[in-house]
Design a protein around this nucleic acid. Structure first.
Lengths: 104, 104
DNA sequence: TCAAAACATAAGCACACACTTATGTGTTTG
DNA sequence: CAAACACATAAGTGTGTGCTTATGTTTTGA
């Protein structure tokens, strides 16, 4: 049940902050730490959680590990959200209708 | 920071199950409990969390309290998701572009 | 090859969280 | 009015979570 891991991962504000930083561009763990009053292991643990939730993916380059947003997790949330499109505000719901007519 | 409450609320599988039931139609707390191996106070507490997260709203009718999906919370998540539309898969991203041209 | 750099993992701790049982608060009905 | 209903709140408990410091692992560079 990956949904659970995604929502749990996003339920922590520090993790969302990390995710937002990565959304601005790929970055390594040390760079992510800049400006955050948190230890290096904490960042590493958060990244591990985000990675298991498919919200982030890593790419090792030498002794540096670069992280970037993984679209997989985001699209899984989008999929979950779409199950409740009947309750979305009209402007969002209208979009959802368009979606159904697009590429299968 | 309502975002935090929303994600925290959805991070629990029991709460998501309750939400899914409500998505099928408005219901009172007792009806929600049917088929769930959980105590009455637990349901009540979960509903409180969902309500504070704007995912659910209540309407008292006599001694019965009916619950239903509140679009507010869903649209807040949709808004959060949209911030990262650059990373969505193409078919979702295309939709997001359309959204921007619709009603302001 | 040896030290430093960049992370990951281990272990421990304080707090949050999801549950329980017990009790309280309104509301309806006989 | 009193008993029954429908639900909320209180209080307590085990488990999970986020953090820390300490230590491990791999890679680079002098």
């Amino acid at each position: 049940m990956i949904e659970n891991e995604i929502f749990k991962a996003l339920a922590d504000p520090t993790r969302r902050a990390i995710f937002e930083k990565l959304a601005a561009g790929r970055m390594n763990a040390s760079a992510l730490r800049h400006g955050m009053a948190i230890s290096q292991p904490a960042i590493s643990q958060h990244l591990s959680v985000l990675r298991k939730a498919r919200l982030v993916r890593e790419e090792r380059q030498g002794r540096v590990v670069n992280y970037e947003v993984d679209p997989e997790g985001l699209s899984l949330i989008a999929g979950w959200l779409e199950r409740y499109r009947a309750y979305w505000p009209t402007r969002v719901a209208a979009l959802s209708e368009l979606l159904k007519d697009m590429e299968p």
